[in-house]
Simulated scan of single mutants.
Amino acid sequence: MNMQIENNFSYHAPKPGQPEIYTAIREKAKELAYLIDEKAPNSREKSLAMTKLEEAVMWANAAVARN
């Protein structure tokens, strides 16, 4: 059995304090998203920046949940 696979593909119920961490991560990312939206011209690059920001939030939250 590969414990990394087991951990990565399992549900992780929030532990005390984790929902607040998820909220803080999302709020900071939202600030950056608004800055990018305001300053970057509409373009493929802007779309990619927004997508990568969403991915960063997802992976940061996964780090909190999995570890």
Rank of each mutant, 00 (worst) to 15 (best):
N2P: 09
N42K: 14
A60E: 02
N61G: 06
Y11A: 13
V57Y: 03
K39Y: 11
S47I: 07
E45I: 12
S10N: 08
Q4C: 11
P14N: 08
T51R: 14
Y22Q: 02
A24N: 03
S10A: 14
A60R: 01
A29L: 02
E45G: 14
E27R: 05
E20G: 03
L53E: 04
N8E: 11
A40I: 11
I21G: 01
E20K: 05
M58E: 14
P41A: 12
N61T: 09
A49E: 07
P16K: 03
R66M: 13
N2E: 06
F9V: 06
T51P: 05
K39A: 08
Y11H: 14
E6M: 13
A13Q: 13
N61S: 11
F9S: 06
K46G: 03
Q4L: 13
E31C: 05
K15D: 06
R26V: 01
N8W: 10
N2L: 08
A33F: 00
A63T: 05
I25H: 00
S10T: 10
R44L: 14
D37T: 09
S47C: 14
E38F: 11
A65C: 09
I21H: 01
L32C: 05
E27G: 03
A65T: 02
P19F: 03
N61A: 13
S43Q: 12
E38Q: 10
R44D: 15
P19I: 04
A13F: 11
R44C: 15
M58N: 12
A40V: 13
A60G: 04
E45K: 13
M50E: 09
E20H: 02
S10F: 05
V64F: 00
G17T: 03
N61C: 13
M50G: 07
E45D: 14
E6N: 09
F9N: 09
S10Y: 04
I5L: 10
E20Y: 05
A33V: 00
P41T: 11
K15Y: 09
K28S: 07
Y34G: 04
H12D: 02
R66E: 11
N7P: 03
P14W: 06
M3P: 07
A24Y: 02
L53H: 02
L32G: 01
T51G: 10
T23Y: 05
V64G: 00
L48N: 15
A40Y: 12
N42E: 14
K30Y: 07
E55T: 11
L48I: 12
E54P: 04
P16I: 01
G17S: 03
E54N: 12
S47K: 15
A63C: 08
L35C: 08
T51A: 15
E45S: 15
N8Q: 15
G17V: 02
E38A: 12
Y22P: 01
I25P: 00
D37Y: 08
I5E: 07
I25K: 00
G17M: 03
R66F: 06
Y22K: 03
Y11K: 13
Y22C: 01
A49R: 04
T51S: 15
T23M: 04
T23G: 01
I21Y: 00
V64C: 01
A33L: 02
E55A: 12
S43W: 12
A65D: 04
E38M: 12
P14F: 05
N7V: 12
R26L: 00
P19K: 05
K30L: 05
I21M: 06
R66A: 11
S10M: 09
A63D: 10
P16S: 04
V64E: 01
V57I: 09
I21W: 00
K39S: 08
R44G: 15
